[in-house]
Amino acid sequence: MAAYVVRRLFWSIPVLVALLLAVFLLMQAIPGGPFDFAGERSLPEAVIANLERRYGLDKPLHEQFANYLKSIVLEGDLGPSFRQRNRSVNDIIGDSFPISAQLGILAIGLALLIGIPAGIVAALNHNRLPDYVASFLAILGVSIPALVLGPVLYWLFALKLGWLPVALWGAEKPFFLGFLPMPTAKFIRHAILPTVALGTGMSASIARLTRASLLQVIREDYIRTARAKGLRERAVVVRHALKNSLIPVVTVLGPMFAAVVTGTIVIESVFGIPGMGKYFVQGISNRDYPVIMGVTLIYAVILVLSNLLVDITYAWLDPRIRYS
């Protein structure tokens, strides 16, 4: 297993380099450069030239890319931000990634906490009322976009009931282990609404997947065997059926995890959360090349790692899967 993990990690390096190269070339292909404009106005050529010299954009492309890789490998430096001179891309990610991760992990936790039990209840009551209710709620959850759910939540719980704050995030650096916030009352009060807004949609898709997969597994021969040998229904479901039916759920969890811990722009802007999501969009609209590359790289690394974790989990969930 250890050898397998090392091999997987090793092979992810060329994947990441290829990805960076693709992003680098795509960025150059979009019309408009990072310094063509300041706010609503165009800049004179001479000023653009000064700015490009300052950031080494006057050098040939292959040299720019080589320098970029070199500074990542040798110094762990993801470069400067073109828009914010007082911050490097490392600063931007260092400030915003932990907050996105906090929200993402809470939301995934909530999604699992709701989604899996709901899926089980629906599957075990196949084509009965609880199934219909759970399926209806799941469809509702999947279809309501966060952009709508977020404002509805703060309208109800903040403006009408006055229980929770409208927006903002309740934790600040420094974080425990770099990303764990202090679970203060302030943190919890601020985290509830965005967690619900982000987690609901995911819990709905997890519930649907769990239900479908469990329904399939429950018709397998080995479940019939388990029942035949007189096991209690609970043991049959939890020990035999559920564990196997989680494979598709775990499969989607990998990419889902990578997507939410790196930040979701909608939830973060609706709730005024200083996460990383906005940099994916801002980086592109500002043509802030190093920011685009940096956040994409982080996303890719998290995706590679979570997919590896998913593959390892397979082996645990299904004894037939073994890596050597």
Binding site: P151, L159, P165, V166, A167, E268
Partner: peptide, 18 residues
């Protein structure tokens, strides 16, 4: 002054007395 990117959220904060 916190930074809030969404105008409607700003409006809600105003109405909530924040």
């Amino acid at each position: 002054a916190p930074i809030v990117a969404e105008a409607s959220t700003g409006m809600a904060m105003y109405e909530n007395g924040e």
